[in-house]
Simulated scan of single mutants.
Amino acid sequence: MGLLILVTGLVLFLGMHAVRIPDEQRRAGMIARWGKNKYRGIYTVLSITGLVLIVYGYGQARLDPIFVWSPPAATRHIAALLMLFSMILLAACYVPMNHIKARLQHPMTLAVKVWALAHLLSNGTLADILLFGSFLAWAVLLFKSARKRAIPMSFSGDGPTKVGTMMTVVVGVLAWLVFAAWLHVQLIGVSPFSR
């Protein structure tokens, strides 16, 4: 039952976030038909519902796991390193004037790709494969689509700075340390370094 709930949540959440992947005009057409507020309302409700179902379904599936493979211990260390890069990419979305965002254009999507890959490598249940595999496939398709319609970023002043880039790395490393050492256990119930 947990797997069915998880899959339903993934379809709702990723489906709503994939509307513009095949065709940018699809999203524009939906907004034109329904109006911006109605579209946003439907988008928000379905996304939140999907996310709740993902969290609940994954939690239920973990209670009675179906093991597909047993990851070697080394994959935990590889995942931890990948998560460091994912956190830096995530920080690049929010720290202003950094070269990482200027160069990669879509650091959030790349952060999701790295996060999903890291967790696919270090987890071997069917629920893990469904969850992280779905997010990885979605992020790959979204990144490819976003690159096709990419509009060069504009910066005020001189553009990205070394200070902005260094702050991005510092924020990313600190976030990784807090999450790996404490928050992952609090939110997920698993310590990345003690399994």
Rank of each mutant, 00 (worst) to 15 (best):
L120V: 15
F85Q: 03
P71C: 10
P72F: 12
P96T: 02
H119Q: 06
F155P: 01
P71F: 11
R33I: 07
D158C: 10
Y39K: 04
H106Q: 08
V55W: 00
L110S: 00
T125P: 01
S86N: 05
V112K: 04
A139Q: 10
Y94L: 06
H99I: 12
A102N: 10
R76L: 13
L104V: 15
K113G: 14
F67P: 14
Q105I: 15
G159P: 07
A73M: 15
L141D: 02
A118N: 02
N98T: 04
T109Y: 01
T75S: 11
L121G: 05
W138C: 11
L53D: 02
A139V: 13
L110W: 07
A118I: 03
Y56L: 15
L141S: 12
Y56P: 01
I66L: 12
P152L: 00
L90C: 10
W138A: 06
N123D: 01
G159L: 03
G133M: 09
I66K: 08
M108Q: 12
A92G: 02
R33Q: 14
I151A: 07
P72C: 00
K36N: 09
A102Q: 12
I100V: 13
M83Q: 07
T49V: 13
F143V: 12
P72K: 10
H77L: 15
S47R: 09
A111Y: 04
H77V: 11
F135V: 08
A137S: 05
S145Y: 05
A91V: 03
K36V: 12
M87K: 01
R149S: 07
V45P: 03
A139P: 02
A118L: 10
R62K: 12
H77I: 14
M97G: 06
P107H: 05
I151D: 07
T49P: 07
I129Y: 08
V55I: 13
R149E: 02
L84I: 05
K148W: 09
M153W: 11
A111I: 04
I88M: 04
K148T: 10
I48N: 10
A116C: 09
G133E: 07
A91C: 05
S134L: 08
V55F: 10
G59S: 11
M153F: 13
L89Y: 02
N98D: 01
D158V: 14
I151F: 09
G133D: 06
I42D: 00
F67L: 14
V114T: 01
L81C: 14
G124M: 00
L53I: 09
A73F: 13
W34G: 04
F85V: 09
A137N: 10
V114N: 06
V95G: 08
M108I: 01
T125L: 06
S86A: 14
H99E: 13
L46W: 08
V112S: 08
I151R: 10
M108V: 00
S70C: 11
L81H: 11
P160I: 00
K101D: 06
G124K: 03
L63A: 14
